[in-house]
Simulated scan of single mutants.
Amino acid sequence: MRKRWKWIIYASSIVALVASASFTIYCAWKVYAYHQPGEREINEHENNAYHFVLVPEELDNDYWRLVEKGAKAAAKETGVHLEYVGPRQANIDEHIRILEKAAASKVDGIMTQGLTEKEFTPMINRIIEKNIPVVTVDTDAPTSKRTAYIGTDNYYAGFIAGRALAEDMRGKANVAIITGSLTASHQKLRVQGFKDAVKKEKGIRIIAVEESNITRIQAAEKAYSILKKHPEVNAFYGTSALDAIGIAKVIEQFHREKETYIIGFDTLPETIHYLQKGTIHATVVQEPYEMGYRAVKAMVDIIKGNDVPSVTNTETKVIRKQDLPLRPARNYEVKHD
Rank of each mutant, 00 (worst) to 15 (best):
Y50D: 00
T183Y: 00
G180I: 04
E211A: 05
T78N: 06
T24K: 02
L242P: 01
I319G: 11
Y32A: 04
M299G: 08
I178A: 02
A220F: 11
E210L: 13
Q36K: 15
K304M: 03
W5E: 12
Y289N: 07
K222Y: 06
M169Q: 08
V85R: 09
I217G: 03
I207T: 12
H186N: 14
P56D: 03
R88L: 12
F254M: 12
V191G: 00
A173Q: 10
V53H: 11
S20N: 10
L326V: 10
P309R: 13
P142I: 06
T271R: 00
I124N: 02
T260H: 12
V250Q: 10
A173P: 14
R4P: 02
I217Q: 14
I319D: 02
K317Y: 15
Q89R: 09
S13K: 14
G162Y: 09
L268N: 08
D153F: 07
Y34V: 00
D153R: 02
V300E: 10
A141V: 04
I280L: 14
F159S: 09
L17E: 02
A223Y: 08
I247G: 00
T147L: 08
I14K: 05
G151S: 02
K72R: 15
V80I: 15
Y149G: 00
I303A: 06
A173C: 13
Y156T: 04
P37V: 08
K72M: 15
T78E: 12
P269A: 05
I132P: 09
A19K: 01
A73D: 15
H255V: 01
V18L: 15
S225L: 15
T215R: 08
T147R: 12
V135Q: 03
I110M: 04
E57G: 13
A197F: 12
Y261Q: 09
D153I: 04
V80P: 06
A248R: 05
E210H: 01
V296P: 03
T143N: 12
I303C: 01
T78L: 14
V334G: 05
V175N: 07
A71N: 05
A19R: 06
D301W: 10
R327K: 12
T179G: 04
E117S: 11
D108C: 07
T260E: 11
P87V: 00
I8M: 11
P133E: 04
D337C: 07
D301T: 10
T239K: 10
V284W: 01
T279P: 01
A148Y: 10
D138R: 02
H273D: 15
D307N: 13
D301M: 14
E58L: 07
I96R: 00
K195I: 06
T183M: 01
E44L: 05
I160Q: 10
G109M: 04
R40D: 08
G38I: 01
E129H: 02
H95Q: 07
E57T: 06
I8P: 07
I8C: 09
P328H: 12
A141L: 03
E129F: 01
Y34H: 13
K69M: 13
K335G: 03
D93M: 10
I42Q: 05
E315M: 12
A235Q: 09
A298N: 09
A248V: 10
K195G: 00
S13Y: 02
L326H: 09
A295K: 13
T112G: 00
T147H: 06
I206S: 07
I262V: 08
F159D: 06
L59P: 03
I251Q: 11
S144A: 05
